[in-house]
Write a protein that binds this DNA or RNA. Structure first.
Lengths: 147, 147
DNA sequence: CAGTCTTCCTACCAACTAAGTAGGAATACT
DNA sequence: AGTATTCCTACTTAGTTGGTAGGAAGACTG
């Protein structure tokens, strides 16, 4: 699996949003707790203008809610426990497994290589199992337990 | 997981070598059954000169044995049942999982994102389980069963 | 209503990687 | 000697990724 900078930043930003809002005690989910893009960029060392285009993807995917203006910012649309790592990856990246730039399920093998398609599908399923099982809340809890 | 053209071609070439030698009845493993690069290229629609650089990788990784000259060609160094898909992928591609171009185990997260590293390691393990369990012989057998 | 803050959106640039090509040197057989 | 084939290096080309610039649109304050 290849994790692009875009996907990596997206996850870190989502975690930072969940953490900032969650510190108020409502489990990371509350309409009033908006976090500014500049604050996220600073806390996770992400170039601001690049981050903004990523936040746009996340909003279009329905994972974030945004608000403009002086007291604007971003907030989760669902509790952190209901957002999985896979949700975020698919919001910015497309398919989890790709063969030569195309999704794994349209590979087009022939002859002796016909069995490869099933291997890629099995890999895709194995990855999905891991990333869909892990939620943002899990990752934040791990951190709290480790510190 | 991203499967590059190089990795895809490598697997198809290895399968073709195993199949060509295996048709003699010795299970795909015999020093005398050399397959020419041009023959592999034609059977799996791979650009010949590109294939040659891939075969070189496979030879350096110890998966193929080669012989020059008029009756030259390539053969497996081990029976097809002892070569896994993962062996081939690692021969041409490096790490199975990479984050921003670097191996998953040296990610360097801080703050709220610290838990991500464990996610990537879990993904890497899940992929390895699939590709190391599947051998070239398995794939050839699947094809025989399906036809 | 003017001013300020922030998100929103499009277009663009630079660097890198992947994919594929070309040409020749070394080796093995006849 | 001649021919066939692997071997190896260097190069070209096209696409993607990572990142930047500059403004338009909306939201609050006074």
């Amino acid at each position: 699996m290849y994790v692009s900078a875009r996907a990596d930043y997206a996850l870190r930003a989502m975690l930072a949003v969940a953490d900032a809002a969650g510190s108020t005690g409502d489990g990371g989910y509350g309409g009033g707790e908006l976090v500014k893009a500049a604050s996220l960029a600073e806390r996770q060392d992400i170039p601001l203008s690049f981050l903004q285009s990523i936040l746009l993807d996340l909003r279009r995917a329905g994972l974030l809610h945004s608000h403009r203006g002086t007291e604007g910012g971003y907030a989760l649309t669902r509790p952190a426990a209901e957002i999985s790592v896979g949700d975020v990856l698919r919001a910015v990246g497309g398919a989890l497994t790709s063969v030569r730039g195309m999704p794994a399920d349209r590979a087009g093998y022939h002859g002796v290589a016909a069995g490869l398609r099933d291997v890629w599908l099995a890999v895709d399923g194995a990855i999905a199992l891991v990333v869909d099982r892990t939620t943002l809340a899990d990752l934040l809890a791990d951190r709290a337990a480790a510190s």
